[in-house]
Amino acid sequence: MNAYLYIIPSDCWDTIKANLNMDIQDGISKSVSDAPPSHYIFKIQLFSLLTKHSVEKYESREFDAVGYKWKLVLHPNGNKSRNVKEHISLYLALAGTSSLRPGWEIHATFRLCLLDQNRDHYLMVEDATGTGKRFHGMKLEWGFDKFISLKDFNGESNGYLVDDTCVFGAEVFVCKEKNITQGECLSMMKDSIINKHVWKIENFSKLDAERYESKPFNAGNQKWKIQFYPKGKGSGQGNYLSLYLALADPTTLPPGLKIFAEMTLRLLDQLQAKHYTGKANLWFSAANPDHGWQRFVSLAYFTNPSTGHLVRDICIVEAEVTILGVANALS
């Protein structure tokens, strides 16, 4: 389907409404047009069965208009969530938003339509102000709670419902579009789950690489790994063992995603269960994918047989990860 961009100057709107002989009540304009809606037609056969089968809401398939995807949302007996009774509720919803850039915002005017099958013309319903509605990530749907009363809709002389068949439609006109100031949404987690991973490291005395990593493990919706520096890192190099928690593949994170996690890293005492523990609440992201301690424990203490951390040249590292919150780019 071809899509066209209509731009209507605000100072022309009153003239247009007058020429269309609009009826304006309660902020809603109603007019009549012989031309069918230019962007979408939605025909329903056996409309009465929607009520019989308790269909409270129906969403049409997506359609293209002025470069975006939309759909119609119909409540055949009124939008119950808004306490609408004895009316049909009809809305225009923006769809396919995952392809839009973060911070998108679209201002659009639109007309929702209903065919009078007796006279072969359309009832056009729109906002009386003509200023348009602002579609964005937190408001994807606009329309009319009381699009038409069920009394008028069912009235035989009106021609809206003939042989239990009706036809709705939509026209969309984009006034302007822009990218708003970018932001983020922080979602804190309630009743977070503790995720535990145990890593057994053998032949410690023979480890000669700077860093070793555990197998990836799951915590929240991400994969993590433990990083183990047997000869230390940074300020701990040579005299300390360094231990870190890291995102397994930070390059796959969506832009702007940050993860607030409680992490606990332990060297297990294999003799007396007096484990050596580090704990912190920290933010992880693609820019900061790992956190830990360069001086987690001194090598002198770690290798002392009486501490139980190194037994038969084996040490055991344990990680506990609890996701406390997630921050995403506001879309």
Results as ranks from 00 to 15, higher is better:
Lys57Leu: 07
Tyr58Glu: 12
Tyr58Val: 14
Glu59Gly: 09
Glu59Cys: 11
Ser60Val: 05
Arg61Ala: 11
Phe63Ile: 06
Ala65Asn: 01
Gly67Glu: 09
Gly67Asp: 08
Lys69Gly: 09
Lys69His: 12
Lys69Met: 09
Trp70Lys: 01
Lys71Phe: 09
Val73Pro: 03
His75Pro: 00
Pro76Trp: 07
Asn77Gly: 09
Asn79Thr: 04
Lys80His: 10
Lys80Cys: 05
Ser81Gly: 11
Arg82Thr: 05
Arg82Ser: 06
Asn83Leu: 12
Val84Ile: 15
Lys85Ser: 14
Lys85Ala: 12
Ile88Val: 15
Leu90Val: 06
Leu90Trp: 05
Leu90Cys: 09
Tyr91Trp: 11
Leu92Val: 07
Leu94Tyr: 03
Gly96Ser: 09
Ser98Arg: 13
Gly103Thr: 04
Gly103Leu: 03
Trp104Gln: 06
His107Asp: 13
Ala108Met: 06
Ala108Pro: 02
Phe110Gly: 00
Arg111Ile: 09
Arg111Ser: 15
Leu112Thr: 01
Leu112Asp: 00
Leu112Lys: 01
Leu115Lys: 13
Leu115Gly: 00
Asp116Met: 04
Asp116Asn: 15
Asn118Met: 10
Leu123Ile: 07
Met124Asn: 07
Glu126Ser: 12
Ala128Phe: 05
Ala128His: 06
Thr129Ala: 08
Thr131Pro: 00
Thr131Cys: 08
Gly132Phe: 07
Lys133His: 14
Lys133Thr: 08
Met138Phe: 10
Lys139His: 11
Lys139Pro: 05
Glu141Phe: 06
Trp142Cys: 04
Gly143Leu: 07
Asp145Ser: 07
Phe147Ala: 02
Leu150His: 02
Leu150Ile: 13
Lys151Leu: 06
Asn154Arg: 09
Glu156Asn: 10
Ser157Pro: 03
Ser157Thr: 11
Ser157Asp: 12
Ser157Met: 08
Ser157Trp: 07
Asn158Asp: 03
Gly159Ser: 04
Tyr160Met: 00
Val162Tyr: 08
Asp163Pro: 00
Asp164Arg: 10
Thr165Arg: 09
Val167Trp: 06
Val167Tyr: 08
Phe168His: 02
Gly169Ser: 04
Gly169Trp: 01
Val174Leu: 13
Val174Thr: 05
Cys175Ile: 11
Glu177Gly: 05
Lys178Ile: 03
Asn179Ala: 10
Asn179Leu: 15
Asn179Met: 12
Ile180Asn: 14
Ile180Arg: 15
Thr181Asp: 10
Gly183Pro: 01
Gly183Phe: 04
Gly183Thr: 08
Leu186Cys: 11
Ser187Gly: 05
Met189Glu: 11
Lys190Tyr: 10
Lys190Gly: 05
Lys190Asn: 10
Asp191Ile: 02
Ile193Met: 10
